[in-house]
């Protein structure tokens, strides 16, 4: 801008100008650093607060969930599907490992070793964010026996992988760990 040009050309004696310029640049740079440092707390204010983060992980007791049963819990404002799979569902999922899928993954990659019974998924269709059906007894589970999204017809298998329909990705597996006393900690 014209103003700064004027600033720089004021005075105008060779050596003095360089020293002066250095001082201007140093001051402007320091000021800019300060402005950024001052802006950060204001921006960081909008990140999740400590009490929100404290609720970022939940503990779900697995006791009482029968084989073949599904439960839905709320985690970070979204549904999480917990299904205790039957032996049949597990073998069907493992058998399909080599099948042609949009987002190839083996069943072993989607469950924890030694806990193959438990399939834990974020219940949000990877297409446009609807909640797929299949949690309740008798609801439509689609051709592959997993979940069926009523919005645009995406079909997931018993490993939560996308097999048919517009969704591009498998249902997301959240981070979780098995804790003592039949408790799973999600998040």
């Amino acid at each position: 801008m014209a103003t700064s040009n004027k600033t720089a050309s004021l005075g105008g004696h060779g050596e003095a100008v360089t020293r002066r310029d250095f001082l201007y640049v140093a001051t402007a740079a320091t000021g800019a650093v300060g402005a950024v440092a001052a802006a950060w707390p204001l921006i960081n204010n909008m990140n999740p607060a400590a009490d929100t983060l404290a609720l970022a992980s939940i503990e779900v007791p697995l006791k009482g969930i029968e084989v073949g049963q599904s439960v839905t819990v709320k985690w970070r404002g979204k549904p999480v599907f917990i299904r205790r799979r039957t032996a049949d569902e597990i073998s069907k999922a493992q058998a399909a490992d080599k099948a042609d899928m949009p987002d190839p993954e083996t069943d072993a990659q989607r469950v924890q070793k030694g806990h193959e019974e438990w399939l834990i998924l974020v219940g949000v269709c990877t297409h446009l964010g609807c909640v797929p059906q299949g949690q309740q007894v008798g609801s439509d589970r689609g051709e592959y026996g997993g979940w069926f999204c009523p919005c645009h017809g995406s079909q997931y298998d018993t490993s939560g992988r996308i097999r048919k329909g517009p969704a591009p990705k498998n249902l997301v597996v959240p981070e979780y760990t098995f804790e003592p006393n039949d408790i799973v900690k999600i998040g």
Binding site: L10, L23, Y24, A26, T27, T30, G34, A37
Partner: peptide, 17 residues
Amino acid sequence: LFLVILAGLFYAVKRKV
């Protein structure tokens, strides 16, 4: 500390200007 340094720089610039 930062503001004190910045004030010093500003003072130097002001003197030169």
